[in-house]
């Protein structure tokens, strides 16, 4: 009854079990909070036939948050999401891009000129669908030399 060693052993076993099960529960809850399936916009999507973007134009596609350029070397797509904190940058012809939130500036290739943005604007890979539509893939980062010819 009064064996202190036994009492201590039982006590610490009890406390350890309570702590372990609490940790297990908290861990499971933390994992539960992270969703497995997202009902978010797809990362590959068609934006229209190449003819809709005449040569020499820069088109802002607000619903996809990107700019599509068509210059003599081919098509390319630059994200409009500022790499600082996610505002939409505006395109200023001949100058590049400007962000309204904290004043970051980017050149025509999306490289940071000045401001708090830590990285250049993202470039996305392009492809052509069987229905001859331009398709953007936001999971396919490409370099600023990238041009897509149809």
């Amino acid at each position: 009854m009064n064996d202190p060693t036994r009492r201590r052993f039982l006590f610490s076993t009890g406390v350890t079990s309570v702590v372990l099960s609490a940790c297990g529960f908290l861990g499971a809850t933390a994992r539960y909070l992270s969703p497995n399936v997202l009902y978010e916009p797809p990362h590959r999507f068609p934006i229209g036939s190449p003819e809709e973007f005449p040569p020499g134009t820069a088109t802002f596609l607000p619903e996809h948050r990107l700019f599509l350029f068509n210059n003599p070397a081919g098509f390319y797509a630059i994200s409009s999401v500022c790499t600082h904190l996610g505002c939409n940058v505006r395109h200023i012809v001949g100058e590049g891009f400007a962000c309204p939130c904290h004043g970051s500036r980017f050149d025509e290739n999306g490289q940071v000129v000045h401001g708090p943005a830590p990285e250049p604007l993202a470039w996305f890979g392009l492809s052509l669908s069987p229905r001859r539509e331009l398709v953007v893939n936001t999971r396919q980062p490409v370099q600023p030399e990238y041009r897509f010819r149809v």
Partner: peptide
């Protein structure tokens, strides 16, 4: 994005630092 896009006022000090 509205221009300028401002956080709630009590976070504007933070936004200033963040800029």
């Amino acid at each position: 994005t509205p221009n300028p896009a401002k956080a709630p006022w009590y976070f504007l000090g933070l936004q200033e630092l963040v800029s």
